[in-house]
Amino acid sequence: MTDPGKVFLVDDEPELRQALARLLKAEGFDVEGFGSAPEFLARVTEDTSGCLLLDLAMPGLDGLELQERVAATGAKLGIVFLTGHGDIPTSVRAVRAGALDFLTKPVRRDDLLRAVQAALVHARAQHAAAAAGADLRRRHAQLTPREREVFTHVIAGKLNKVIAADLGTTEQTVKVHRARVMEKLAVDSVADLVRVAQQLGVKPAP
Protein backbone atom coordinates (compact mmCIF):
# COMPACT_ATOMS: atom_id res chain seq x y z
CA MET A 1 0.00 0.00 0.00
CA THR A 2 1.59 3.22 -1.10
CA ASP A 3 -0.52 5.51 1.14
CA PRO A 4 -0.91 3.85 4.54
CA GLY A 5 -3.51 6.38 5.64
CA LYS A 6 -4.28 8.53 8.61
CA VAL A 7 -5.14 7.27 12.10
CA PHE A 8 -6.91 9.52 14.62
CA LEU A 9 -6.20 8.24 18.09
CA VAL A 10 -8.49 9.38 20.89
CA ASP A 11 -7.59 8.22 24.41
CA ASP A 12 -7.61 10.17 27.69
CA GLU A 13 -4.55 8.39 28.96
CA PRO A 14 -1.38 9.97 27.59
CA GLU A 15 0.81 6.93 28.24
CA LEU A 16 -1.41 4.57 26.27
CA ARG A 17 -1.92 7.17 23.55
CA GLN A 18 1.80 7.49 23.18
CA ALA A 19 2.40 3.75 23.12
CA LEU A 20 -0.24 3.18 20.43
CA ALA A 21 1.01 6.16 18.45
CA ARG A 22 4.53 4.78 18.57
CA LEU A 23 3.38 1.40 17.34
CA LEU A 24 1.21 2.78 14.55
CA LYS A 25 3.93 5.20 13.49
CA ALA A 26 6.43 2.35 13.41
CA GLU A 27 3.97 0.56 11.14
CA GLY A 28 4.10 3.59 8.88
CA PHE A 29 0.75 5.20 9.63
CA ASP A 30 0.27 8.88 9.98
CA VAL A 31 -0.99 9.24 13.56
CA GLU A 32 -2.70 12.18 15.20
CA GLY A 33 -3.54 11.92 18.93
CA PHE A 34 -6.34 13.55 20.94
CA GLY A 35 -6.98 13.58 24.70
CA SER A 36 -10.77 13.68 24.40
CA ALA A 37 -13.67 13.34 21.99
CA PRO A 38 -14.52 17.08 21.91
CA GLU A 39 -10.88 17.80 21.11
CA PHE A 40 -11.16 15.50 18.10
CA LEU A 41 -14.55 16.85 17.03
CA ALA A 42 -13.09 20.33 16.96
CA ARG A 43 -10.54 19.15 14.45
CA VAL A 44 -12.72 17.03 12.18
CA THR A 45 -14.07 18.40 8.84
CA GLU A 46 -15.95 17.11 5.81
CA ASP A 47 -12.64 16.28 4.14
CA THR A 48 -11.36 14.26 7.09
CA SER A 49 -10.76 10.67 6.16
CA GLY A 50 -9.07 7.83 7.94
CA CYS A 51 -9.35 5.48 10.91
CA LEU A 52 -10.73 6.72 14.23
CA LEU A 53 -9.28 4.63 17.06
CA LEU A 54 -11.34 5.45 20.13
CA ASP A 55 -11.10 4.42 23.78
CA LEU A 56 -14.57 3.58 24.93
CA ALA A 57 -13.93 4.13 28.63
CA MET A 58 -13.48 7.85 28.70
CA PRO A 59 -15.20 10.40 30.89
CA GLY A 60 -17.97 12.41 29.22
CA LEU A 61 -18.19 10.34 26.05
CA ASP A 62 -21.09 8.49 24.57
CA GLY A 63 -20.07 6.39 21.56
CA LEU A 64 -23.39 6.66 19.74
CA GLU A 65 -23.52 10.41 20.10
CA LEU A 66 -19.96 10.76 18.85
CA GLN A 67 -20.76 8.59 15.85
CA GLU A 68 -23.72 10.81 14.93
CA ARG A 69 -21.72 13.97 15.30
CA VAL A 70 -18.90 12.56 13.19
CA ALA A 71 -21.41 11.56 10.49
CA ALA A 72 -22.96 15.02 10.59
CA THR A 73 -19.62 16.57 9.69
CA GLY A 74 -19.51 14.42 6.54
CA ALA A 75 -16.08 13.06 7.48
CA LYS A 76 -15.26 9.68 6.08
CA LEU A 77 -14.07 7.59 9.03
CA GLY A 78 -13.80 3.94 9.89
CA ILE A 79 -14.31 3.71 13.65
CA VAL A 80 -12.50 1.14 15.77
CA PHE A 81 -13.21 1.03 19.50
CA LEU A 82 -10.73 0.07 22.14
CA THR A 83 -12.19 -1.36 25.32
CA GLY A 84 -10.85 -2.55 28.63
CA HIS A 85 -13.44 -5.27 29.00
CA GLY A 86 -14.73 -7.47 26.28
CA ASP A 87 -18.11 -8.02 27.88
CA ILE A 88 -21.27 -8.29 25.82
CA PRO A 89 -23.02 -5.03 26.80
CA THR A 90 -19.90 -3.09 25.90
CA SER A 91 -19.55 -4.83 22.54
CA VAL A 92 -23.20 -4.27 21.70
CA ARG A 93 -22.86 -0.62 22.59
CA ALA A 94 -19.76 -0.32 20.43
CA VAL A 95 -21.34 -1.95 17.38
CA ARG A 96 -24.52 0.07 17.79
CA ALA A 97 -22.38 3.16 17.87
CA GLY A 98 -21.25 2.26 14.38
CA ALA A 99 -17.99 0.56 15.16
CA LEU A 100 -16.42 -1.56 12.49
CA ASP A 101 -14.51 -3.44 15.12
CA PHE A 102 -13.74 -3.33 18.77
CA LEU A 103 -10.49 -4.39 20.33
CA THR A 104 -9.92 -5.54 23.87
CA LYS A 105 -6.94 -4.13 25.71
CA PRO A 106 -4.17 -5.09 25.74
CA VAL A 107 -4.27 -5.31 21.98
CA ARG A 108 -1.88 -7.37 19.83
CA ARG A 109 -0.14 -5.66 16.94
CA ASP A 110 -1.66 -7.96 14.32
CA ASP A 111 -5.20 -7.38 15.56
CA LEU A 112 -4.66 -3.67 15.73
CA LEU A 113 -3.18 -3.58 12.27
CA ARG A 114 -5.99 -5.62 10.76
CA ALA A 115 -8.65 -3.48 12.37
CA VAL A 116 -7.00 -0.20 11.41
CA GLN A 117 -6.51 -1.34 7.84
CA ALA A 118 -10.09 -2.51 7.57
CA ALA A 119 -11.22 0.84 8.89
CA LEU A 120 -9.08 2.63 6.37
CA VAL A 121 -10.48 0.49 3.54
CA HIS A 122 -13.96 1.33 4.79
CA ALA A 123 -13.09 5.00 4.87
CA ARG A 124 -11.69 4.88 1.37
CA ALA A 125 -14.78 3.04 0.15
CA GLN A 126 -16.92 5.67 1.78
CA HIS A 127 -14.79 8.27 0.08
CA ALA A 128 -15.06 6.50 -3.27
CA ALA A 129 -18.78 5.96 -2.82
CA ALA A 130 -19.20 9.58 -1.97
CA ALA A 131 -17.20 10.54 -5.07
CA ALA A 132 -19.19 8.10 -7.26
CA GLY A 133 -22.46 9.36 -5.87
CA ALA A 134 -21.52 12.92 -6.70
CA ASP A 135 -20.77 11.93 -10.35
CA LEU A 136 -24.04 10.10 -10.68
CA ARG A 137 -26.03 13.02 -9.30
CA ARG A 138 -24.31 15.31 -11.81
CA ARG A 139 -25.31 12.97 -14.66
CA HIS A 140 -28.86 12.60 -13.34
CA ALA A 141 -29.18 16.36 -13.30
CA GLN A 142 -28.51 16.36 -17.08
CA LEU A 143 -31.70 14.36 -17.76
CA THR A 144 -34.68 16.24 -19.21
CA PRO A 145 -37.97 16.03 -17.26
CA ARG A 146 -39.35 13.66 -19.93
CA GLU A 147 -36.25 11.46 -19.71
CA ARG A 148 -36.60 11.31 -15.87
CA GLU A 149 -40.20 10.25 -16.32
CA VAL A 150 -39.20 7.51 -18.73
CA PHE A 151 -36.40 6.55 -16.24
CA THR A 152 -38.87 5.87 -13.44
CA HIS A 153 -41.03 3.76 -15.73
CA VAL A 154 -38.10 1.75 -17.08
CA ILE A 155 -36.86 0.80 -13.64
CA ALA A 156 -40.38 -0.27 -12.79
CA GLY A 157 -39.76 -3.06 -15.35
CA LYS A 158 -42.41 -1.88 -17.84
CA LEU A 159 -42.21 -2.61 -21.60
CA ASN A 160 -41.72 0.30 -24.03
CA LYS A 161 -45.26 0.12 -25.40
CA VAL A 162 -46.75 0.14 -21.92
CA ILE A 163 -44.68 3.17 -21.06
CA ALA A 164 -45.77 4.82 -24.32
CA ALA A 165 -49.40 4.14 -23.46
CA ASP A 166 -48.94 5.47 -19.90
CA LEU A 167 -47.24 8.63 -21.13
CA GLY A 168 -49.52 9.04 -24.15
CA THR A 169 -46.73 8.90 -26.69
CA THR A 170 -45.32 6.55 -29.28
CA GLU A 171 -43.22 3.49 -28.56
CA GLN A 172 -40.48 4.96 -30.79
CA THR A 173 -40.19 8.12 -28.73
CA VAL A 174 -39.87 6.08 -25.56
CA LYS A 175 -37.11 4.01 -27.15
CA VAL A 176 -35.15 7.22 -27.97
CA HIS A 177 -35.63 8.62 -24.45
CA ARG A 178 -34.55 5.34 -22.97
CA ALA A 179 -31.36 5.25 -25.04
CA ARG A 180 -30.59 8.86 -24.01
CA VAL A 181 -31.10 8.00 -20.33
CA MET A 182 -28.79 4.99 -20.52
CA GLU A 183 -26.21 7.07 -22.33
CA LYS A 184 -26.35 10.01 -19.88
CA LEU A 185 -26.19 7.74 -16.84
CA ALA A 186 -23.43 5.63 -18.46
CA VAL A 187 -25.08 2.24 -18.04
CA ASP A 188 -25.38 -0.66 -20.44
CA SER A 189 -28.30 -2.65 -19.05
CA VAL A 190 -31.58 -2.23 -17.30
CA ALA A 191 -30.09 -4.08 -14.32
CA ASP A 192 -27.41 -1.41 -14.00
CA LEU A 193 -30.05 1.25 -14.41
CA VAL A 194 -31.98 -0.19 -11.46
CA ARG A 195 -28.80 -0.17 -9.31
CA VAL A 196 -28.09 3.45 -10.24
CA ALA A 197 -31.68 4.36 -9.43
CA GLN A 198 -31.24 2.84 -6.02
CA GLN A 199 -28.01 4.80 -5.51
CA LEU A 200 -29.75 7.97 -6.50
CA GLY A 201 -32.77 7.17 -4.45
CA VAL A 202 -35.09 7.37 -7.44
CA LYS A 203 -38.34 5.53 -6.81
CA PRO A 204 -39.87 3.43 -9.67
CA ALA A 205 -43.13 4.69 -11.17
CA PRO A 206 -46.27 2.97 -9.89
Binding site: E13, A19, R22, L23, A26, V107
Partner: peptide, 24 residues
Protein backbone atom coordinates in the same frame (compact mmCIF):
# COMPACT_ATOMS: atom_id res chain seq x y z
CA UNK B 1 -14.57 -4.48 36.23
CA UNK B 2 -12.77 -1.38 37.34
CA UNK B 3 -9.88 -3.45 38.60
CA UNK B 4 -9.59 -5.20 35.25
CA UNK B 5 -9.34 -1.81 33.65
CA UNK B 6 -6.75 -0.72 36.18
CA UNK B 7 -4.66 -3.76 35.28
CA UNK B 8 -5.44 -3.71 31.58
CA UNK B 9 -4.35 -0.17 31.10
CA UNK B 10 -0.70 -0.68 32.07
CA UNK B 11 -0.67 -4.03 30.28
CA UNK B 12 -1.91 -2.36 27.10
CA UNK B 13 0.73 0.33 27.47
CA UNK B 14 3.42 -2.29 27.92
CA UNK B 15 2.21 -4.40 25.01
CA UNK B 16 1.99 -1.57 22.48
CA UNK B 17 5.27 -0.06 23.59
CA UNK B 18 7.08 -3.40 23.38
CA UNK B 19 5.74 -4.09 19.94
CA UNK B 20 6.67 -0.61 18.79
CA UNK B 21 10.18 -1.21 20.12
CA UNK B 22 10.39 -4.50 18.25
CA UNK B 23 9.50 -2.74 15.01
CA UNK B 24 11.97 0.04 15.67
Amino acid sequence: GALAHELNQPLAIIMSNAEAAQLL
